[in-house]
């Protein structure tokens, strides 16, 4: 474990907590893409299948349980509990255009042709594009609540910090995972536009309004 990965995991944890608090306090999922949250639930489910077969640490196991659990609670909030506030008219990204190519790529490009490894690879590739429906929704509605912007900033920062973690681990541990690094770069690049708006606008108290 290194500081980059720890701060990255905490940023990821914070993002999820911000989202859940926003939903619970405002009793609304307005502006949140249910499709992205479904993709995140798929990402965690397919990545943490080794939850019961390989033990790394208490931290690792507890975080995995938390991420899987909260991802399903979030989907439940959007499609059941706070369904009347779900804005399906603006959450129209065609996720099949993500899942099919990502599934095909995971089948062709992986570290080992085994079920668990292909599912893990699928999860890594899917996570890199899972935020697209959410970013698409923000561009369609033309704006995002500031709390949603904070959620996106924390979520985008987590994988950017993981890039630093991989640089650190490469030089100090000789650890290198090309699939995770490439997908992590794609994932972080997708946030660049948002990061720019967040830093130039939200931090000055303005609202984000992506070009609709």
């Amino acid at each position: 474990m290194n500081i980059f990965r720890l701060v990255g995991d905490m940023s990821h944890l914070l993002a999820i907590i911000i989202l859940l608090m926003k939903m619970w306090k405002s009793r609304s999922v307005a502006g949140i893409s249910g499709k992205s949250q479904i993709l995140f639930a798929i990402v965690f489910t397919t990545r943490y299948l080794d939850l019961f077969t390989s033990f790394v640490s208490i931290y690792n196991t507890s975080m995995k349980v938390f991420f899987i659990g909260t991802s399903y609670v979030t989907v439940y909030f959007i499609y059941q509990h706070f369904k009347p506030t779900y804005d399906s008219n603006h959450d129209t990204f065609r996720v099949e255009f993500l899942i099919v190519p990502v599934g095909g790529l995971a089948f062709l490009v992986n570290h080992e042709f085994s079920l668990l490894e292909i599912l893990w690879t699928f999860s890594i590739y899917l996570e890199s594009v899972a935020i697209l429906p959410q970013l698409f929704m923000v561009s369609k509605t033309g704006e995002a609540e500031s709390i949603t912007s904070h959620y996106l900033f924390a979520l985008g920062s987590y994988r950017a910090l993981y890039l630093l973690n991989w640089i650190y681990r490469y030089y100090f541990e000789g650890f290198f995972d090309l699939i995770a690094v490439v997908a992590g770069c794609v994932q972080t690049i997708l946030y660049c536009d948002f990061f720019y708006l967040y830093i130039t606008k939200v931090l000055k108290g303005k609202k984000i309004s992506l070009p609709a």
């Binding site: 990965r5 995991d9 990821h12 080794d50 390989s54 790394v56 690792n60 975080m63 995995k64 991420f67 570290h111 080992e112 085994s114 490894e117 893990w120 993981y162 973690n165 650890f175 290198f176 995972d177 995770a180």
Partner: peptide
């Protein structure tokens, strides 16, 4: 035994 990078990250 799986030869790829070890899976110890989230």
């Amino acid at each position: 035994e799986f030869s790829g990078p070890k899976k110890d990250e989230l």
